[in-house]
């Protein structure tokens, strides 16, 4: 097209081309960038239920940050968030990898099998949380029945109301949700691997295990890295599951950063502190995001 128009027309066309971007750009500026900047502003002010919408909002500097960081609940939530995130990622990635390797083979039914697994990932988390609460219920829950009958436990366990088992229970539910996503991402990576290299390795006498360690893993490294980053980003912000399964309890044993930030703002009405905490969590995720972008760019160069 450029070849045919003169320079003036070209400029006008260029200008028109930006109208493709304009709606999205304006939307994201108004409802994403502005709110985030606004949130930073809120975090430096003393805001309660009385002055949130209108009225004087005194500037308090970094006081909100200090209050949040000093709160013993913050430490607890941070540790829980880390355990929750790391455990979810380790298990969902490794199980997802195993499934991806299996479903990458072509056997009768492999296509519908791998897509039906995604139902776990697409069902609303609120519903999955409810179903897991029922399965983990101390009275007549199927998991207890199974463990009792097979002799692993002699007493029913109240999984979600016992501070020792609540976090593990939620992690298990979240691993279940995350596995299909990990599988799909890894599967798309596996499908991009050149098949010739495996033929060559076979001729050279490498067995399946050696092929996995020396060919599959190194070649899959970029995909795995991207998946790990996405996993951290998605898992660190899980909120609904905690809300519906335990509400952060019992005894704060499942309190995590996003849930605490929600509680500070919307049930304790300490809005300034809520804003401060979500900025802290954004900072943590942001560090990971920067790493993610760095890795993606490297991958594109390859």
């Amino acid at each position: 097209m450029e070849k045919f128009g003169n320079a003036k027309q070209l400029n006008r066309n260029k200008f028109k081309d930006y109208t493709f971007l304009l709606p999205s750009a304006l939307f994201l500026l108004a409802f994403l960038v502005y709110p985030i900047l606004y949130n930073i502003l809120l975090s430096f002010k003393d805001i309660n239920i009385g002055n949130l919408i209108q009225g004087e909002q005194p500037f308090v500097g970094i006081e909100n940050y200090i209050t949040v960081l000093k709160d013993p609940l913050f430490g607890k939530a941070l540790v829980n968030s880390l355990i929750f995130t790391v455990a979810t990622i380790i298990f969902s990635t490794s199980i997802g990898f195993a499934l991806a390797l299996l479903f990458n083979k072509s056997f009768p039914g492999h296509k519908w099998m791998r897509s039906i697994l995604l139902i776990a990932w697409m069902t609303p988390i609120i519903i999955i949380g409810t179903v897991f609460s029922w399965m983990l219920s101390g009275e007549n829950g199927i998991i207890n029945e199974f463990l009792l009958q097979s002799g692993f436990i002699s007493q029913p366990v109240y999984w979600l109301t016992n501070p020792n088992s609540a976090l593990i229970s939620i992690i298990i539910a979240n691993i279940w949700i995350s596995i299909p996503f990990s599988m799909v991402i890894l599967l798309s990576g596996l499908q991009g691997l050149p098949s010739g290299i495996y033929e060559a390795a076979k001729i050279d006498g490498a067995n399946k295990i050696k092929q996995f360690y020396y060919i599959t893993l190194p070649l899959m490294k970029p995909t795995i890295l991207v998946l790990l980053m996405l996993g951290v980003i998605f898992t660190f912000k899980v909120f609904d599951l905690i809300y519906i399964m335990t509400g952060g309890g019992p005894a704060d044993s499942t309190q995590v950063i996003p849930f605490l930030a929600y509680q500070l703002s919307f049930s304790m009405y300490r809005f300034g502190e809520g804003a401060a905490l979500s900025n802290i969590s954004f900072f943590l995720i942001g560090m990971i995001a920067i790493l993610y972008l760095y890795l993606i760019r490297k991958e594109e160069v390859m």
Binding site: L32, I36, P258, S265, F271, G274, S281
Partner: peptide, 10 residues
Amino acid sequence: MFPSNMLALP
């Protein structure tokens, strides 16, 4: 990557 709970309040 923005966590949705960061946008909820603003």
